[in-house]
Design a binder for these strands. Structure first.
Length: 455
RNA sequence: GUGGUUGUAGUUCAGUUGGUUAGAACGCCUGAUUGUGGUUCAGGAGGUCGUGGGUUCGAGUCCCAUCUUCCACCCCA
């Protein structure tokens, strides 16, 4: 066998026992909230057929999809395509039959269409799985990461959007991250703006520029708009929007004014007003209407969401409404959907930085028994059965090593109690239970311990 | 994909204009303590200086390539 250096691809990570305890804590909280809102879980394969994914995320997205190298005859076809003076990228897209999924929304749309006869709508699903992007890694940006998606498909009602806001609030409340800001916008407003300033066909250009407002001054953005081919007149008309400020209501008033003549814009204003009103009625104070919020994913058509935290550089949740994602897979009727995705890995990084993980997620064993020999071990095995039936996590050190070594092991593993059963305890039929945090110890019967620590 | 940045012990980092045998702290191992971890004390192990080339009498230090890390653009969870 050939030797190789141990290592993993860039932008990927191993998760040890401590990290998994924390990660599962995040997943459990998120899952619990999803279930409380009536969503059910699905899973889809790590890979999809390439044509399912290509063209759904825009040009940049296509480039970031991991294609799986073809095998056998297809591999020779790749060679032929390359010889036809194709770029390697085009050749790869043409010949790779499979690719790793880039997100969970597009595979979900594929799933819905494929199983449309078995699904009753509106279909509320959640899905927690890894996705892969051929990105250049940075802080909070990985090439393999988990998304926690909730989507409702087959309903136009804005109540779905409202429920998603509730879910975001509940999740971040549970995770002890109350400082998040939920940013809202609507693609219809963005379309309306483009229409109102007479640049209907340049909506993407305008939204990309608007998105940069939080990074560069207005003058720079104006310059960029000009470079992107937007007329001076249109840029002039855009200024009230670029200089938006004040409360959500004040911003909405200004926008409504600018969009008075745009049908689609008015629809967007109507939707946004409803959502802001509902959020206000729930007493939420951290909702921000931001026209600059664009979100690159091509398929969004209505509301768009993004959650940020002051101590983290990038968004930790994002999503929106898509009207026709199932259409491209040949759905019988038009199915509108809306959903969001929690970025578990970014939430993990943020919570670690803020030291928000409860200590309890790190201990896996309640009682570790010191091994004093065969006779003692035989008795401990019986007692452990009783303890486990009472819901107490317990284990026996497998070797009769030195006490010091066993105690150190217990300490390193962060167990709550050490159980000692030697000759004295066998005679008394009791267990010496030591609290590893306080150092106190007492002699108790197994029944008394079940009573004390049992679930 | 473009531009920049980082890499030295298990970890975090020192290491002078290129010059003997590459250091510290923490961690790890052993003992003080044969039924007590976390504290204390004494001792010990551990490095092909990311990898591969090159310049030089001599390279952790300079040059090139490559990988990795982080950052900006782009995009995004």
């Amino acid at each position: 066998m050939s030797m190789s250096k141990a290592g993993i691809p860039k932008g990927t990570r191993d998760f040890g026992p401590v990290e998994m305890g924390r990660r599962n804590y995040i997943f459990d909280q998120i899952k619990e909230v999803f279930r409380l809102h009536g969503f059910s879980q699905i899973e889809t394969p790590a890979m999809e057929r390439t044509d399912v994914l290509l063209g759904k995320y825009g040009e940049e997205g296509d480039r970031l999809i991991f294609k799986i190298m073809p095998r056998g005859r297809k591999l020779n076809q790749l060679k032929t395509e390359l010889e036809k003076d194709q770029t390697a990228e085009v050749a790869a897209n043409k010949t790779a039959e499979e690719a790793l999924r880039y997100d969970l929304t597009v595979p979900f749309a594929r799933f819905v269409v494929q199983h449309q006869n078995d699904i009753s709508f509106p279909f509320k699903r959640y899905q927690i799985q890894p996705v892969w992007r051929a990105d250049k890694p940075q802080k909070g940006r990985y090439r393999e990461f988990y998304q926690c998606d909730v989507d409702c498909i087959g309903s136009d009602s804005l109540l779905n959007e409202i429920e998603l806001i509730n879910i975001m609030q509940e999740v971040y409340e549970r995770l002890n991250l109350p400082d998040v800001t939920i940013k809202l916008n609507n693609r219809k407003i963005l379309a309306g703006i483009a229409e109102a300033i007479g640049e209907k066909d340049n909506m993407m250009e305008i939204t990309i520029a608007l998105d940069k407002l939080d990074k560069m001054p207005v003058e720079k953005v104006n310059e960029e708009l000009k470079n992107r081919g937007i007329s001076e007149e249109a840029i002039e008309k855009l200024q009230p929007i670029m200089n938006l400020s004040g409360s959500n209501e004040q911003k909405m008033d200004t926008i409504a004014d600018v969009l008075a003549d745009s049908e689609i814009g008015q629809k967007g204003v109507e939707e946004m007003t409803f959502m802001l009103g509902q959020a206000d009625a729930m007493g939420y104070k951290n909702i921000d209407f931001e026209v600059t919020l664009a979100r690159g994913l091509n398929y969004y058509t209505g509301a768009i969401f993004e959650v940020t935290h002051p101590d983290f550089p990038s968004s930790i949740t994002g999503g929106g409404r898509y009207d026709d994602l199932t259409g491209v897979f040949g759905a019988k009727e038009k199915l509108s959907g809306v959903g969001i995705s929690f970025g578990a890995d970014r939430i993990y990084d943020l919570m670690l930085q803020k030291e928000l993980f409860p200590e309890s997620v790190e201990n896996v064993t309640d009682i570790l028994f010191v091994n004093f020999g065969d006779n003692e071990a035989a008795q401990v095995l019986k007692w452990m059965k009783q303890l486990r039936e009472a819901g107490i996590k317990t284990e026996l050190y497998p070797d009769t090593a030195k006490m010091k070594k066993q105690m150190k092991f217990a300490n390193d593993k962060n167990v709550r109690f050490v159980g000692m059963v030697g000759e004295d305890e066998l005679n008394k039929q009791e267990i010496t239970l030591k609290n590893m945090k306080t150092g106190e110890q007492e002699s108790l019967t197994v029944e008394a311990i079940c009573e004390k620590l049992g679930k």
